[in-house]
């Protein structure tokens, strides 16, 4: 878990879903211990990229290495946790039953269920059936399961979608707490104001990474004052010509945020 090796390393990734070529030679390295925000319009390939990292996406070519192992390797199933876009819980079971089931699948003590339920603030809803929960509570149930055990990489697909600002702030508080413990997080979102809460940003469009940067550099590079406009600006430049997507002269073929490159040197 030294900072020198990337948490996720993708090279030449090619993915086809149906007739659509989603990725055609995607390269990417993610720095461990940081929150990487995966941003981009819907349909840009965020979920597919996430599925590749978790190892549940059929790929046509390239390599996806997660924590030093090929994505989806059995050994990674305890080290990488994932919560999909739809809250993947049993809606006919209670919060407690859902979390307890997964606790047992990971072979963890039942106190672990209490811990994660409390962590996502659902202690009072523990015996409530999932289909009686609000959207936010349902998402948090799904999130609680992704916190079980000691994951080294937590991958969350749009965990804050449709949530009110207070709840979103709370969840980002949880994510920050995890990152402070050295856990790497990949969090996708299409709400650009969440960009500021990330350490690194991956801006995607049409199956390509338009920029791999940090919130601060994003504003500087785009010359805009808020992330929303900055993102639009980069998209505009990307549409105009992918070669000019970044002002940075040293954009390496392997997309790595600049601070990480500095760290490595």
């Amino acid at each position: 878990m030294m900072n020198s090796s990337p948490a996720v390393s993708i090279a030449g990734l090619r993915v086809k879903r149906g007739k659509v070529q989603v990725f055609d030679g995607l390269d990417l390295d993610l720095t461990p211990g940081r929150i990487t925000g995966l941003m981009g319009p819907s349909g840009c390939g965020k979920s597919t990229l996430i599925r590749c990292v978790v190892g549940i996406q059929k790929v046509q070519g390239g390599t996806v290495t997660v924590l030093g192992l090929p994505a989806g390797t059995p050994a990674l199933r305890r080290r990488v946790t994932y919560s999909s876009q739809q809250a993947s819980v049993y809606t006919d079971l209670s919060v407690g039953e859902n979390v307890t089931y997964f606790t047992r699948l990971y072979g963890l003590p039942s106190t672990e269920a209490d811990r994660v339920i409390t962590a996502v603030g659902l202690a009072d809803q523990r015996s409530q059936r999932a289909d009686d929960l609000s959207g936010g509570q349902l998402t948090r149930t799904s999130l609680a399961i992704a916190l079980l055990g000691q994951p080294e990489l937590v991958v969350l697909d749009e965990p804050t979608v449709g949530l009110d600002p207070v709840l979103r702030a709370e969840l980002w508080g949880i994510f920050r707490g995890l990152a402070d413990q050295g856990i790497t997080l990949i969090v996708s979102s299409h709400v650009m104001d969440e960009a500021n809460r990330c350490d690194d940003l991956l801006l995607m469009r049409a199956g390509r990474i338009v920029a791999h940067t940090t919130p601060a550099s994003l504003l500087i590079e785009s010359g805009k004052s808020d992330p929303d406009e900055a993102f639009l600006e980069l998209i505009r430049r990307d549409i105009a010509g992918p070669r000019h997507s970044l002002d940075t002269p040293n954009e390496a073929p392997v997309s790595t945020p600049r601070h990480a490159e500095e760290d490595q040197r």
Binding site: G55, Q86, A87, F102, Y106, G107
Partner: peptide
């Protein structure tokens, strides 16, 4: 269809 199978297959099950 609910996504729980996909989730189960990412666990040690």
């Amino acid at each position: 269809t609910s996504g729980t199978l996909e989730r189960l297959l990412t666990t040690p099950l």
